[in-house]
Design a protein around this nucleic acid. Structure first.
Length: 552
RNA sequence: GCCCCGGUAGUAUAGCCCGGUCAAGUAUGCGGGCCUUUCGAGCCCGUGACCCGGGUUCAAAUCCCGGCCGGGGCACCA
């Protein structure tokens, strides 16, 4: 029955079913709740600000997609809107940029690494194209943060603190100001100049923002805006050479750089994870001192995925390639066969609510399957092949046709010819199905014929032809199984990753045979193997086809 | 320990701001059926949740208080 026929059947018999069905409430860009106070802005400016210390993970996809989704949403509503990509690479030591790793060096040119192309590629894959791109280490060289820091010192909003860290902590914990806090503006400017000139070593001087020494959260009390880091920034080394990189050792902290840049870039709305909640408070002091308008902020919960960590540092510790299909990096998911549409759907579905969300694998697969199903053609393949000889064939040659995709007949069919010798034809079936055949006795070979089990001889199964027609199989409710010709076939190796990330040291491999047509699919294409699952072609060079199992 | 933020079925989400139309919707999962030359897709049916206790109210998933549980932060990381 076609869908139309089914609907009309239901309509005639149970009309109330159709009428009472409530509308689906699937999340789309249109159904995202409006951003706070959006009417106060002529243009909505959003940003995604990753640290380029690794490629993007599924966790980063949430802020990336949500921010971009709002840009698209407001554009659709006829409002001007902008999406900025900003690389926050202001820690050359603890969070070194991921540009000197051999994995990226072999794939990207120096020019590309300076642009942190590996992240731009991840976004591109998601269909995200930033309107503007900034790199904070460039802005350090341009002196942007130093200028704002000077201004802040001049208006008495910041001071240079030369207390040793442990001494400062004691002041902080007892809510008392340290002696540095009362230094004159002139003194502070002079000391700051010395910091910039390299007259202090790491840890000897920092610029602190005057906040509130009695603030209930100790980390808010006179937080550090700039500090000295005794390491050459790898990106600056690559771009300008050792000597120049040597000169820039005063780096803004996250909160300072974010406050300055959010203002300078005209960001109107910040959508970020809830771990940044206190940072909004810290940053508010900068905005108040300088008379800037602080962006509207929305904090959403953290994202978890079943059976995997999304922590970049932990993922790096695994020592795998960043695009290993076992990894929940975007590059890994891409290799695995997960489609960007599926990631978008999940992120829009999870939305911007403040509670944490755990994505289950079965949910991810179900959504991905929906998109994969229409683009993956169907092929015959068997795992652990067992030869089966079918007797009593009454033809010289058997020709059958397999539809490329049962749901889309317009995609055509392909022919498979089987030679008959002495009234016998030989094919392979999966070891799994042998048991089925023994038990049920009769079985239908998909698009080929109905057979009956006779016995076993020299490791092969002996069966006989019952009939070719489908009606017999239907009438007798025969199981339908897939098969592969004895001669015209190709070896396959399927790599399976059922856990993300790895719990096994190696991939689980399954060996089998597929119809030779499958070998025509190029690397990177997806297929569905009948009664097995969706696979992606990862190598087809050596006569053996290497496939990656995506999911059922 | 201190400071924040959460808590709707296995999972995710809608509703909560502006209490009644919510004996709680949707997706996925799970169970069953139909359809189909796949264990895929599609269609149908079923399953299953408002953390607990008080309060306010004619009426609470929705408002208030307390508890419990979970998460995040407490860096010269981002």
């Amino acid at each position: 029955m076609s869908i139309e026929e089914q609907i009309s059947l239901i309509r005639s018999r149970w009309p109330e079913l159709l009428e009472e069905r409530k509308e689906e409430t699937r999340r789309t860009i249109e159904t995202l709740p409006p951003l706070p106070n959006d009417e106060n802005y002529d243009m909505i400016v959003l940003r995604f600000a990753p640290n380029p210390d690794f490629v993007l993970t599924l966790g980063n996809a949430r802020p990336a997609i949500l921010n971009y989704a709002y840009k698209l949403k407001y554009e659709k509503l006829g409002k001007k809107s902008k999406f900025i990509l900003r690389f926050e690479d202001t820690d050359p030591k603890v969070k070194r940029p991921f540009i000197d790793d051999p994995q990226v060096r072999e794939r990207y040119s120096t020019e590309e690494l300076l642009r942190y192309k590996f992240i731009i590629d991840d976004l591109e894959w998601l269909g995200i194209r930033p309107d503007e791109i900034y790199v904070q280490s460039d802005r350090v060289v341009e002196g942007i943060y130093y200028d704002v820091a000077k201004k802040l010192i001049e208006i008495g909003g910041a001071y240079v603190c030369t207390c040793p860290e442990d001494v400062w902590r004691r002041y902080r914990d007892s809510k008392q100001p340290c002696p540095c806090r009362s230094r004159s503006v002139e003194e502070n400017l002079e000391l700051f100049e010395k910091m910039l000139n390299g007259e202090f070593k790491e840890g000897e001087a920092v610029v602190r923002v005057k906040t509130d020494m009695a603030h209930p959260d100790p980390s808010v009390r006179d937080w550090v805006a700039l500090r000295i880091v005794d390491a050459k920034h790898p990106r600056l080394v690559l771009k300008y050479g050792e000597n120049t990189a040597e000169k820039f050792k005063v780096w803004p902290t996250y909160n300072f750089a974010v406050a300055v840049d959010d203002h300078l870039m005209g960001i109107t709305h910040v959508l970020r994870a809830q771990e940044h909640r206190v940072n909004t408070v810290k940053q508010s002091y900068i905005f108040k001192y300088l008379g800037w308008k602080q962006p509207e902020t929305i904090h959403f919960g953290r994202l978890h995925i079943e059976g995997a960590t999304l922590s970049k540092s932990k993922l790096r510790e695994l020592g795998l390639r960043y695009d290993d299909p076992r990894l929940p990096t975007l590059a890994g998911l891409r290799e695995r066969g997960i489609l960007p549409e599926a990631i978008w759907e999940i992120m829009l579905n999870v939305g911007i609510k403040p509670s944490d969300a755990k994505i289950s694998l079965s949910n991810l697969y179900a959504i991905n399957r929906k998109y994969l199903d229409e683009r993956a053609n169907r092929y015959l393949a068997v795992i652990d092949p067992v030869l089966i000889e079918i007797e009593e064939i009454d033809k010289e040659l058997i020709v059958c046709e397999i539809p490329n995709h049962p749901s889309y007949p317009e995609r055509g069919k392909r022919k498979i010819e089987l030679n008959v010798e002495d009234g016998k034809v030989r094919i392979y079936i999966s070891k799994n199905d042998v048991e089925l055949l023994r038990k049920r006795r009769k079985i239908r070979l998909l698009e080929l014929m109905n057979i009956e089990y006779i016995g076993e001889q020299d490791g092969k199964i002996i069966a006989r032809l019952v009939s070719y027609d489908l009606d017999t199989a239907r009438r007798e409710k025969l199981d339908i199984i897939q098969w592969v010709p004895e001669k015209d076939n190709v070896k396959i190796i399927v790599e399976r990753v059922d856990k993300t990330p790895l719990t096994e040291k190696d991939f689980v491999k399954e060996f089998g045979l597929a119809e030779s047509e499958l070998a025509k699919l190029g690397k990177g294409n997806v297929a569905q193997l009948f009664r097995y699952g969706f696979v992606k072609v990862i190598d087809s060079r050596s006569g053996e086809l290497v496939l990656r199992f995506i999911h059922e």
